[in-house]
Design a binder for these strands. Structure first.
Length: 759
DNA sequence: CTAGGGTTAG
């Protein structure tokens, strides 16, 4: 059979392998263990499909220990650990005695459960085998406790480089940089694997400068080393560096493999550039790159992030048996990214084996598309299904959803969950807590959390500054920016928007101007803040001059600020100017028409009011508003304009009608407040239904008893606009009404109101 | 025979 052996030596491609296989069958040798194990070892090297390899194995009549071992190695190589274990059982049943070569493979597949096999290994007398010893040690290094691995390591009389490498990568896995470093300097001889482990270790700690230093110092590199560095860049968001390194790799004639492409593709995903994506796909086709499931899923994600949902879907459909949890999750986020929550949810519900990331994707999808209640509902569903453990990523979405709702109790409940389940928070976790407290009006707590943080990033500062801005605390915002610079953080555009907004809300003109002048490259949003600030302090002409001086095209926010300021200051000339510009930029936005029309109304120019409404009708502009929320009985009730979907809708409208009649009888004029104003008029015009705020307030009145509070969660405006109405209602109904917005109680009694600070 | 690199969520 020497000519067969000669053919076997020439197997370098799948094509050759199948020719060799055909020859083996031709000579009816496919039942012989020798040829079977030889074929399987080729399969492993060439990554033949598992079913084909198993076919070869099954054709052996009585597979010997070598055939079993090679088949086990094949399964191990493709990561099919369940098959390794199943085949080992099969091996024992057939009475084949496993040798020392089997155990390292088996132990690796058993992973954490390998301790069970420890006894088995001892019984078979293989504990003295250096490879078995390494495998056992590696299991402890990977799955912990690492001190067990260290104990085995220390007891060794002679160590292979692989033993040192196992320990080093084990320490990196557990985040122990110090020990990893120590072993690296201590070890007598290093190889590529050692150096690569250091590169990927430093990448894990996000210290890419040191990672690159080790990479550059490596005496020799292979594809894996390049991949380690490349993935380090890709995973930490350094897309530019990754692509640059890839080019260098190509220049040095290093042949990229699938892992290389995964890193390159995911770097291109970050850029979200459809052109780059297309040229990359073209390149993959040109080079005839073999696409394994990792590459395919990376491509799926890239298409989704570059806005090509159809292509992503196509890849997903074509994945077939490789459609694993990661592919499902990537597809779910593809849908949530474009705001298609129902498709995302449908996929999520259809998904067979959900993992934490699936839940996190769904919850984040809700949270980022303004569906905070749905996010929290999904989270509750998640913790009801006992086998799912929320992690930090889950909690970040949940906590910020609580922030968006402005419900402190809910936020505290989420934080409580974090503590009870010992979920440790990183910087972004704490940032979400700062955001939540700020949005819930609890600046004291926001500040406390910020101060308690050991390490902060730019986002920590920006979140707190934005919080100060929303609360009109200009001094704290400026002060914090100063502190930020002192700590060595460079303020970014968000910082400046925050500080300028804070100055604007606090009416701090000079400080705001100083900050604005210090911005090296102000963008359109900074101009918008500045114009808002000038408008608020009454310097409207200066605001207009600044608009004229802007080096870029102003956006709607710029003119919106001017329009609002003009309304307050009754500068009809500037108001008209701003409104005209706004009608050009966003003709479909009803708010602009309403503002201008209100401005005319406040000056008694009813003819102009009528004219604007006519323009609105002609342009087909529909009035739109957001949702209003009321909490009652631990449940959130939400209302939108003209909402009739609420279970107590009939009662709500009945109450509204009753109140209106009572008010009319009591002699109140309809346009004095917003709860009862022009309801009939609006409905007659069929432009809009009853405002969401009115519905929310009426529902609150309906369900609350005297002395209990109505909690209006969203639309802070509600409380403000409804102020007068609530006064009247308290007088008419003869009862005390407590309305709570984000951080205050408003207590209405007998026609007057007192505010109580809360907390 | 061993050790190093891979896709999804914030």
């Amino acid at each position: 059979m020497s000519h067969l052996n000669a053919i076997a030596l020439r197997v370098t491609q799948i094509k050759h392998l199948s020719q060799f296989h055909a020859q083996v069958i031709h000579h009816s040798l496919q039942h012989h263990s020798y040829w079977v194990s030889l074929l399987i070892s080729h399969c492993t090297r060439l990554r033949a499909p598992p079913f084909y390899t198993r076919l070869i194995f099954n054709s052996a009549q009585q597979p010997n220990v070598y055939a079993f071992t090679n088949m086990l190695k094949f399964y191990s190589h493709v990561g099919a650990h369940d098959d390794v274990i199943a085949l080992f059982d099969c091996m024992r049943v057939s009475g084949v005695i496993p040798d020392a070569f089997v155990f390292p493979v088996l132990i690796k597949s058993w992973g954490k459960a390998a301790i069970v096999f420890h006894g088995h290994v001892l019984k078979m007398g293989h504990q003295g085998d250096r490879y078995v010893r390494n495998a056992v040690m590696d299991v402890y290094a990977k799955h912990g406790p690492i001190c067990f691995a260290r104990k085995l390591f220390d007891e060794m009389s002679e160590r292979m480089v692989a033993d040192w490498n196992s320990m080093i990568s084990g320490y990196w896995r557990w985040g122990n940089k110090v020990e990893a470093d120590k072993l690296f300097t201590l070890m007598p001889e290093r190889n590529v694997v050692t150096w690569t482990a250091m590169v990927s270790g430093y990448s894990k700690t996000r210290d890419l400068v040191t990672a690159k230093r080790y990479f550059d110092q490596m005496p020799e590199k292979n594809v894996v080393s390049w991949n380690a560095m490349l993935s380090g860049y890709a995973q930490n968001g350094f897309a530019e560096e990754a692509i640059e390194l890839f080019n260098e790799m190509v220049n040095r004639r290093v042949q990229p493999d699938e892992t290389t492409w995964v890193a390159v593709i995911s770097s291109c995903s970050d850029r979200a550039d459809p052109n780059l994506a297309n040229s990359l796909v073209k390149m993959l086709n040109q080079k005839n790159v073999r696409l394994n499931s990792f590459v395919k899923i990376a491509l799926l994600d890239m298409h989704a992030k570059c806005g090509n949902l159809a292509a992503a879907k196509k890849v997903f459909e074509e994945l077939g048996a490789f459609r694993n949890a990661v592919a499902w999750n990537a597809m779910i986020s593809a849908y949530t990214r474009v705001g298609d929550l129902s498709s995302a949810r449908e996929l999520f519900d259809r998904m067979p084996r959900k993992n934490v990331v699936s839940w996190n994707s769904m919850i984040a999808g809700y949270a980022q598309n303004g569906q905070s209640t749905m996010a929290i509902e999904a989270f509750k569903e998640m913790i009801r299904s006992k086998d799912m453990k929320p992690d930090e990523v889950t909690m970040i979405s949940v906590i910020s959803a609580c922030g968006h709702l402005g419900v402190l109790e809910l936020g505290n409940w989420a934080l409580n969950f974090v503590n009870e389940n010992q979920i440790s928070l990183s910087i972004s976790g704490y940032n979400s807590v700062i955001f939540m407290y700020s949005k819930c009006g609890s600046m004291k707590d926001a500040k406390r959390v910020f101060e308690e943080m050991e390490t902060r990033d730019v986002i920590s500062f920006n979140t707190l500054i934005t919080g100060f801005a929303a609360h009109g605390d200009g001094f704290s915002a400026i002060d914090l920016m100063r502190k930020m610079k002192g700590d060595g953080f460079q303020p970014d555009r968000i910082t400046y928007i925050g500080v300028l907004t804070a100055c604007s809300h606090a009416g701090m003109l000079e400080e705001g101007q100083r900050v604005f002048e210090s911005i090296s490259n102000p963008d359109v949003d900074h101009y918008a803040c500045m114009i808002d600030l000038l408008g608020r302090v009454g310097k409207l002409d200066e605001a207009k001059r600044l608009i004229k001086k802007m080096p870029m095209v102003p956006h709607a926010g710029v003119y919106g600020s001017l329009l609002n300021a003009s309304r307050i200051r009754k500068r009809i000339d500037l108001g008209e100017f701003a409104a005209r510009e706004l009608f050009k930029i966003e003709p479909e936005n009803s708010g602009n028409y309403v503002l201008l029309s209100n401005m005319y109304a406040s000056m008694g120019r009813w003819g102009d009011v009528e004219r604007i409404r006519g323009e609105m009708r002609l342009g087909g502009v529909k009035k739109t508003t957001g949702w209003s929320w009321v909490e009652f009985g631990g449940k959130l009730h939400k209302f939108i304009v003209g909402d009739k979907s609420h279970e107590r809708s009939n009662d709500i409208y009945k109450l509204l009608k009753e109140l209106r009649e009572k008010m009319r009888k009591a002699g109140y004029t309809a346009d004095k407040d917003s709860v009862l104003r022009d309801v009939e008029e609006e409905e007659k015009e069929e432009m809009v239904g009853t405002h969401s705020e009115k519905l929310a307030v009426c529902f609150g009145l309906l369900v609350s008893e005297a002395g209990t509070s109505i909690r209006i969660m969203k639309n802070l405006r509600v409380c403000w606009d409804c102020h007068e109405a609530m006064k009247m209602i308290s007088k008419l109904e003869g009862r005390e009404i407590i309305v709570r917005d984000n951080n205050r109680f408003h207590c209405f009694n007998n026609g007057s109101c007192s505010c109580m600070d809360h907390w």
